[in-house]
Design a binder for these strands. Structure first.
Lengths: 217, 217
DNA sequence: TCAAAAGTGTTATGATTACACCCATGT
DNA sequence: ACATGGGTGTAATCATAACACTTTTGA
């Protein structure tokens, strides 16, 4: 067995946040290096041998998007995308293979994300990102929809530790495309074991909505 | 940015088959190389730069387990396992990091798999495999349970192109741990759009069961 | 004709959806 | 008080589970 020369493994992070006013958004940052230099793309780095994959994802968010570690509430491995002839096909041979392990990175919408990050509404059209990044975003979109409310860690990262019924319903609407009936949605939250209804209320133009708090950590 | 020296990316395949008599089984093969030489483990190879990840998985099944390509009905990417100090930590430094992209590989139970492969009942205890292979098998087990009947490609690979109600019910039982009510299970299959009930019957000691056929390819 | 196993009929139970109506707040 | 939205009550609908009972085979 000869010496192995493999493509390098990169991690690319699909940044997501759920902003109370702006809704569900995907984040991109500007590429500093060729190829596609200057274009908006998913922040990514090559994985170093001394770090875990999740650490690499975290580093991508930090160094490429300039987002503080504390602002990243959740990191979730998605899928390895295997593309002939994508980035870093430096000089030669035209088409080099490349691997990208995609992560979902949920960001605190209250955190400042600086000028490096551009946020795009998830309800808009495809983002037109280079490489196969549009596919990756799409994969993430379906991942979110399939796991909302059932994957507590992910959902909690999107909503924050506590949230109003209103915000929850809007998140549901953003993820699935249909606004739930307010009444039924309230009952749905009631049924979730990890949620607790507080006595607080959250103003919203009419009758204030209840506030829900995730139990435990 | 200096030259990158990364761990090598391996693919490891969780072989699975659903044998009409023996039930759901996971397959292992004997390791030919250190570390853990001679032990049963998941077949895996280092990915080459000129092949896709799925091709690498396919090659692992072929070269390490000696299973013909045609016998592999389905290959599905699972997760990247990132383990400090696993295999191929050749000589030095004691603990090298290593990456393994796990695949689920569904094998035709009618195909001869030679002496290289050892099949273990999925209902038995943990297999006691080296590295984190037990964890990987467990991941695969949950993957199967979560997707049975909803993921047509995977389920079809397990059942074959056509199968009796009996076999389907046994598969369900093997995956979930509970034997479904025969009556309700029949109706469940009726409800699946991709399934068609044939007029054939399949003997089974009592009244013969119907045969179901997957539509399309 | 009896045992074994597959299906059908039917009902109970529970989740999901819809919608009428009442409640809590700001103006 | 009225507009705005949140929430409760309640009923219809649909899926799931349970179980009695019938059907089809082999012995």
């Amino acid at each position: 067995m000869a010496a192995w020369k493999q493509p390098l493994l990169a991690v690319d992070v699909v940044l997501v946040r759920f902003h109370p006013e702006r809704g569900l958004e995907f984040g991109t940052s500007e590429r500093a290096a060729e190829p596609a230099r200057g274009e908006q793309a998913l922040p990514g780095v090559l994985v170093r041998s001394d770090e875990s994959l999740t650490d690499a994802a975290s580093r991508a968010v930090g160094t490429k998007a300039g987002i503080a570690d504390e602002a990243v509430r959740h990191l979730d491995q998605l899928h390895v995308f295997d593309t002939p002839g994508r980035e870093d096909s430096t000089v030669e041979s035209g088409r080099e293979r490349s691997w990208s392990l995609a992560f979902l990175g949920v960001v605190d919408p209250a955190a400042a994300t600086g000028e490096h990050v551009r946020w795009h509404s998830a309800s808009g059209p495809a983002l037109g990102l280079p490489f196969d990044h549009d596919d990756i975003v799409d994969f993430a979109r379906q991942h979110i929809r399939a796991r909302l409310w059932s994957d507590v860690a992910m959902t909690r990262a999107l909503t924050g530790d506590s949230f109003s019924t209103r915000l929850g319903a809007d998140l549901e609407a953003a993820a699935t495309g249909v606004q739930p009936h307010a009444s039924n949605f309230h009952r749905r939250l009631t049924g979730l074991a990890d949620l607790e209804r507080l006595d607080e209320k959250s103003p919203s133009g009419g009758r204030p909505a209840h506030v829900w708090k995730w139990r435990r950590p």
